[in-house]
Simulated scan of single mutants.
Amino acid sequence: MPKVKSEKTSRQHKLIAKQGILFNKDFGQHILKNPLIIQAMVDKSALRPTDVVLEIGPGTGNMTIKLLEKAKKVVACEIDPRLVAELQKRVQGTSFQSKLQIMIGDVLKTELPFFDICVANIPYQISSRLVFKLLLHRPFFRCAVLMFQREFAQRLVAKPGDKLYCRLSINTQLLARVDILMKVGKNNFKPPPKVESSVVRIEPRNPPPPINFTEWDGLTRIAFIRKNKTLSSAFKQNAVTATMEKNYKVHCSLNNIDIPEGFSMKDKVENILKVNNFETKRARTMDIDDFMRLLHAFNVEGIHFS
């Protein structure tokens, strides 16, 4: 008898999905329908029976069910109340019901709970913000297996000198080890997105590098405004020097340092770049160690980016 009930539920579930009422373009909803890819993502996350899993955008629950089979608990974060109802219906009366916690709301505005692993087919428009929300989350999680737009995934792993190397690349790689696990064609989704996808594994560096990430982010933001220009050119922009001068004056005021008459932030910055051999370097060829040295060189002279 239970089998009949399960088949009936499954038929209803397919019928609702077929009607197309589940997919909201505003939320970037593309339901992953290929069971082989869902299983591969679950397998790659190397779940333990004691793990708490965070799933973002569970959709109709295809991945959720597979995670519930392996983990101690699944916390599913969903913004669409219709999908929440569908997910609740799917586990109702099963052994999974007590293992599933649903958080309703925008994951970017939600305080994340404790979790060991994150597995998700996420809406692509929140990719960048979500990556950094996860990487700055404490306590540390073990790893995340996430579906991204293919070009975004390639940016995450790009190295200095690569065409796609950018601020996203270096900021992510500072905080985590990143690997592309597999490519996923658009026909594996319903409705199919306009782009190809890739699954990425992100493992936070624990302990994290001894660096103030807000400052690091401020520095790389300036350097990558025009990643093909020299640093000397990037730091000469009026808006950049004005912000740096404001921060510098705050630093001097807090530390009782006198600012000499006729002080020029442009000259000071140029001198720091020259003395440390960064004047002609370009962001697109610089690695993490280069940026660490540059940040240290500025900080030693009282220049901060937070």
Rank of each mutant, 00 (worst) to 15 (best):
I38Y: 01
I38T: 10
M41W: 05
M41T: 04
V42G: 10
D43L: 11
S45W: 04
A46L: 12
A46G: 06
R48L: 15
R48G: 07
R48D: 10
D51Q: 10
V52Y: 11
E55A: 07
E55V: 01
I56S: 00
P58A: 14
P58M: 10
T60E: 15
N62K: 13
M63R: 05
L67K: 03
L68R: 00
L68A: 02
K70C: 11
V74Y: 00
V75G: 03
C77P: 05
E78H: 02
E78W: 00
I79Y: 12
D80Y: 02
D80Q: 10
D80K: 05
V84N: 02
A85R: 11
A85C: 04
E86V: 09
Q88C: 02
T94P: 04
S95I: 13
Q101G: 03
Q101P: 00
M103I: 14
M103H: 07
I104A: 06
G105A: 09
V107L: 04
K109Y: 07
T110G: 05
L112D: 03
L112Y: 04
F115N: 03
D116Y: 00
N121W: 01
I122C: 06
I122V: 09
Y124G: 03
Y124K: 06
I126F: 04
S127D: 10
S128T: 15
S128A: 14
R129A: 15
L130A: 07
L134D: 11
L135P: 00
L136D: 12
F140A: 14
F141K: 03
F141L: 05
R142H: 13
R142F: 09
C143F: 08
A144I: 01
V145Q: 11
L146I: 15
F148M: 13
F148I: 13
E151V: 12
F152E: 13
L156N: 08
K159F: 12
G161T: 07
G161R: 14
D162S: 10
K163T: 12
K163L: 15
K163S: 13
K163R: 14
Y165M: 13
R167N: 05
S169M: 07
I170E: 08
N171D: 14
N171S: 14
T172N: 10
L174D: 01
A176H: 03
V178C: 12
